[in-house]
Simulated scan of single mutants.
Amino acid sequence: MTTVTSPMAGRAVGLPAVPDPVFSGAMVGPGTAVDPGRAPTVAVSPVDGIVVSLHPHAFVVVDPGGRGVLVHLGIDTVQLNGDGFELVATKGDTVERGQAIVRWDPGAVERAGKSPLSPVIALEASTGSLTGLVEEGTVTSGAPLFVWS
């Protein structure tokens, strides 16, 4: 069982409301999303594990049980070519929950015409394997978003 926590403070939003069919349709896995404040912030690891994929706009951390959690910072933000993002971690790093991974500016993302809404996805999980899914309300960085069993 893995508790997946929020990579940043903001407002929880269910995946059906995410403006990207890959996420809203849970094609890469179930989860939830966080609509961050618009001030510059740091996205932190939602689990203890290893950073197996790291891009300015997205990262995946795999926990000791082999579960991969994707954090995608905004929608269509790959098109920003890293503008407004600064990598803090390195691919291959062993990280603890709450450790900084990427500094970014959700307000700049929004001003560039992209949504800062950030999906947090349990990769290759079945929908029924998540409990306690938070899909609304205010969340703080490090607050539980769901439990993956």
Rank of each mutant, 00 (worst) to 15 (best):
D105K: 07
V51D: 01
G65M: 10
V102E: 10
M27H: 14
M27P: 05
G65C: 01
K91G: 13
P7F: 10
A58F: 01
G98H: 07
V88I: 15
V139D: 02
A143W: 07
I50S: 03
I101N: 00
D48Y: 03
V52K: 13
V44W: 02
G68Q: 07
S129W: 01
T127A: 15
G98S: 07
A108L: 14
V69I: 15
V51C: 00
E136G: 14
H72L: 08
E96D: 10
V13M: 11
M8V: 12
R111W: 03
G37D: 12
G49C: 09
S53L: 15
A89T: 00
V34A: 07
K91M: 13
A122N: 03
G37P: 02
V139S: 09
P30F: 11
V95R: 00
V28K: 03
A9S: 15
A26S: 15
T41K: 02
A112Q: 09
A89D: 01
T5I: 11
I101D: 00
L123N: 02
H55W: 12
T5S: 14
L130G: 05
L87D: 11
L70R: 06
A17W: 07
L54I: 09
V13I: 14
W148H: 07
L133Q: 11
G137W: 08
A100K: 08
L117I: 15
G98N: 06
G98A: 09
G65A: 15
L15E: 02
P119M: 06
R38D: 13
G31I: 07
E135K: 12
G142E: 04
G137T: 11
S53F: 13
K91I: 04
G92D: 01
L54W: 08
V78P: 03
F146A: 09
G74E: 06
A26C: 13
L80M: 15
D105M: 04
A26Q: 15
G84E: 08
L54K: 12
G68T: 02
G31Q: 05
V18Q: 06
P106A: 12
L15F: 11
R67C: 12
G92C: 03
R103C: 04
R67V: 05
P30A: 14
R103D: 14
R11Y: 13
A112K: 12
G37H: 06
H55R: 14
H55C: 02
L80W: 03
V147L: 11
G137M: 08
I50A: 07
E135L: 05
P19Q: 12
P30G: 14
H72K: 06
S115F: 05
